[in-house]
Design a protein around this nucleic acid. Sequence first.
DNA 1: GATGAATGAGGCTTCATTCAT
DNA 2: TATGAATGAAGCCTCATTCAT
Lengths: 212, 212, 212, 212
Amino acid sequence: MKTSTFEKLTEDKQIAILDAAAGVFAQKGYFQAGILELCTATGISNGAMYKYFENKQGLYITVARRTMELLQTAANRMAAGQMNIWQRMQRILEEVVPFTTLYRDYFIVYMDLGSPSMDIFAAELSDDFERQSFVFFCRLIEEARLNGEIRPGIATETAAYFLDNHLMLFAFSCVSKHYDRRFHQYFAKDAELLESDQKIRLIMQSFRQLLG
Amino acid sequence: MKTSTFEKLTEDKQIAILDAAAGVFAQKGYFQAGILELCTATGISNGAMYKYFENKQGLYITVARRTMELLQTAANRMAAGQMNIWQRMQRILEEVVPFTTLYRDYFIVYMDLGSPSMDIFAAELSDDFERQSFVFFCRLIEEARLNGEIRPGIATETAAYFLDNHLMLFAFSCVSKHYDRRFHQYFAKDAELLESDQKIRLIMQSFRQLLG
Amino acid sequence: MKTSTFEKLTEDKQIAILDAAAGVFAQKGYFQAGILELCTATGISNGAMYKYFENKQGLYITVARRTMELLQTAANRMAAGQMNIWQRMQRILEEVVPFTTLYRDYFIVYMDLGSPSMDIFAAELSDDFERQSFVFFCRLIEEARLNGEIRPGIATETAAYFLDNHLMLFAFSCVSKHYDRRFHQYFAKDAELLESDQKIRLIMQSFRQLLG
Amino acid sequence: MKTSTFEKLTEDKQIAILDAAAGVFAQKGYFQAGILELCTATGISNGAMYKYFENKQGLYITVARRTMELLQTAANRMAAGQMNIWQRMQRILEEVVPFTTLYRDYFIVYMDLGSPSMDIFAAELSDDFERQSFVFFCRLIEEARLNGEIRPGIATETAAYFLDNHLMLFAFSCVSKHYDRRFHQYFAKDAELLESDQKIRLIMQSFRQLLG
DNA sequence: GATGAATGAGGCTTCATTCAT
DNA sequence: TATGAATGAAGCCTCATTCAT
């Protein structure tokens, strides 16, 4: 039972290190992030870095895993509560904002993971999160359907994929200029900068218009 | 008025070079692609490379610009024709497949451009394509609305953003394992590998269910 | 009078440590052997390593010293007995085999010590062994000469150096592919793998032919 | 037919580089020789180093190959002439001295190659030289036997191996303190420093005493 | 005395870019 | 203009050694 040196640190320290590393990875991307830079940011020495993690890749994977955990946890929290589908989606969208604020760096790492050049990490990273969010949205729709909250004639997957896409791209827009601009193009032609809650209102309208 | 040496090449040669470069960038990503590798792939010498382009970034931007042109051209071609909205969307989706096959490498470059670490190129690259696809989808919906092809009560932007998202993520799924898996999770739980036309059928169902 | 911590260990432990270290040094050579590797092999902690020995070089020298002691001891044992020169040489050669088997690692360390890049250790290591083996062979020859066992007209040093060389290179050949190949080239052209006792027979023939 | 960048240099330059590299390798050994040190010594930049050779190992192997060539050439030159065996051996020994002086560094590299930790290079380096020196000595003995220059009753291999060993160890002694000390112990007990020609005289005496 | 975490200099190698031909 | 050799900064990683516990 060989616990790596990193795992022996207090959880606080571990998190502090991963947070700092996530910051660097978010700002520069995996390939542009230098080991020395990561050392400075995390406040650990070059040598310690390689005691804690096998590799730069090892560090990145650990950060990515924490990313998944955070998403998972957040998703679970968002999923709670017994309201109707509109209230639940509203709440979920509202939770996205603090999440992408608080865990901005991790979320950017998550975005990057979708990019083709990051496929090298696919093997090392489970996609539990994606799987569970699929389950979650399907269930959400099913329940809503039972409660007559959504129009009939809509397949569960159709609706679930729609919600998931919208949520994902909203979250992306909270963190990436590119996706923010895209969102604005559709919903705020006139260059006014949308507040998050305005965005949410618009998204909720979409939901209601297409599903309600 | 400094015409770069590259522009003096025959267009065929220019395209051949950019194609080859796109291949390398697609496979390895911008940062992992080495200049020498790009030289070998494009068949031009190290020295010529720096005569043709200011530097690696210059080459990348040229590739990215061609990417945008190709997308633009394809979009224009897709947009043509005077059918009803379902036929048009069907046709657009069907065009996505050969496009992402023929210009696979360019399309991967396009995907990468959305990733946060590529923001460094944002300034150099116009987002005409995104702007025009916005215009296109809005117009499409407006016309469909006039023809009574879509349900009333749906805001133009809502529907246009919905179509655009779906289209984008479908195209992504043609090229990226990550997005393909995501699509399958929703529409083909039981691991069977979907052919493109099956995917298209499913997407068209979504469109009809939510907009029709 | 500072007795190092190492010397306070039981002799068994000391030997076990040196044996393990010799194993690593033999396999990788001094420069390629890592301290951590040596720690693992010897079963002592990184910290203890530096309590026991001043540094890596200190450990190596201790191993080298034990090497010399072992050679010395073996040589003394081999030298015993009151037979004629041929019997004695035969016996010595026969003892070489178990020695280079049992103390293979130490003997490889000994070989390495002859290599120019190990001259840095020359100052720290007495050459008692070499001196004594010189004395031994000279005496052996002198006695043989008195007993009329060797041809007249051969200077003592000539014969002694000859025996020593042969013995040394035989021992090398027991442990090093390079010297084994060399031996085979001369005495077993036809690629058959010689057993040690065959080698010994051939060497004894040499002795008899040149000295007898 | 891809000629490496190194091979495009003038032969003089190539040799100058290898000479300088051999100097560093001889002084410090393969593992202790640093790339930067090798760059400085050879007068080529870090970058060029890796254009010329795949590796530090690649450079070393090139040096080692030149070593073998030099030995080969020297051996061929030494082998020439139609004298009796004593004159020929005398001449060979006499040639050893300028060779180990002129090509001292290469010869030290050659010595190092026999050490167990250099076995990693065995695969890359042919042992043509060793093979040919075997052939050479056997032939030498055979001819001498025909001319009645050596005692009857001595097997060819016995004598050839004897000559080869003596020659090798003499050459070693020209270059290595360790082997020089060993030689002196046998032939110059009284610490007087032997000149090369004195050594040669002693060796020739050995030859005559044992073979003549 | 023993442990093993921490250190940081230094190792080898890559790579974008420049420059002589 | 075209070539490809040369450059050297910077990258990732290892390792002998020190030091706090």
